[in-house]
Simulated assay, not measured.
Amino acid sequence: MNTLRATLLALCLGASISAHAAADLDISSPAIQALTQSMKARTAQLSDYYASGAVGFAQDGSIRVRDANLVPLPKRQEVNRLVTEENQDRAALYREIARANGHPEWEDEIRQTFAQRWAQRAQAGWWVQGRDGWRQK
């Protein structure tokens, strides 16, 4: 689980990502720090759902409930809430990185770069969405 947290935190922080030649994806601001901390804290709650295949990495840089049947009925509302909160933080992170670079118009490119990295760095057995649909890594 520590590897999972480290991987997701590194991705949140934009480690080794180059969305746009001039974009600094390692840039930091109080808003970016708060978002990455929120995402890091949520990782432990989502990790079992990534591992089971219930939740996967979508091609647009968000996460999605891929198979609700893999979530016990009493936990479905909680998982939906976690996914919604994670996606809100991800969208805000992409926006804040673009703003911190002084180019809010780069948000879509930053989102796409993160989406590619989330998929590349997903652990074996996790699900990622590509142009051809969902696949297990």
Rank of each mutant, 00 (worst) to 15 (best):
W106A: 04
P30L: 09
I97F: 07
A122P: 01
H103R: 15
S28G: 07
I27M: 02
I32L: 12
D60N: 14
S29K: 09
D67T: 02
S18E: 15
N80M: 09
E96Q: 15
N2L: 11
S28P: 00
E85M: 10
G133R: 00
I97R: 14
N87Y: 08
T113L: 03
R5K: 15
L93T: 05
R5E: 14
I17T: 11
G53R: 06
R76D: 07
A19M: 03
L9A: 06
Q136N: 10
D132W: 03
G130H: 08
M1L: 11
F57H: 14
I27W: 04
W106D: 07
M1I: 05
I32W: 07
S28E: 12
A6Q: 14
A54I: 01
S28H: 05
L93N: 04
V55L: 04
A124I: 09
G14P: 01
G14S: 03
I32V: 13
E109Q: 11
N2H: 09
D89T: 03
D24Y: 01
W134E: 04
A115L: 11
R66T: 04
K137D: 00
A23P: 03
R42V: 01
R5N: 10
A115Q: 05
L11E: 08
L73T: 14
G61R: 08
L82C: 02
G130W: 03
L73G: 00
Q77S: 13
E105P: 00
G61Q: 09
Q88T: 13
W118M: 14
E85F: 03
I63K: 06
D60F: 01
T43W: 07
L11G: 10
T113S: 15
A115Y: 06
E85N: 09
A6R: 13
L9H: 08
A115T: 07
L9R: 12
G56F: 08
L25D: 04
G56C: 10
S52N: 02
Q123S: 13
A6G: 03
L25M: 13
V83C: 02
V55I: 12
Q116N: 10
Q37W: 05
L46K: 06
I97K: 15
A119C: 05
V128P: 00
Q112K: 14
Q59T: 08
V71M: 02
L11Q: 11
S28K: 14
V71H: 01
Q88Y: 02
L35P: 00
N101E: 06
G125W: 09
G102S: 09
A98E: 01
D24V: 04
L11W: 08
L46P: 00
P30K: 08
Y49P: 00
A19Y: 01
P104W: 12
A100L: 04
A124Y: 04
A41G: 06
G102W: 13
A31M: 10
Q59M: 15
A124K: 13
A44L: 12
D89E: 13
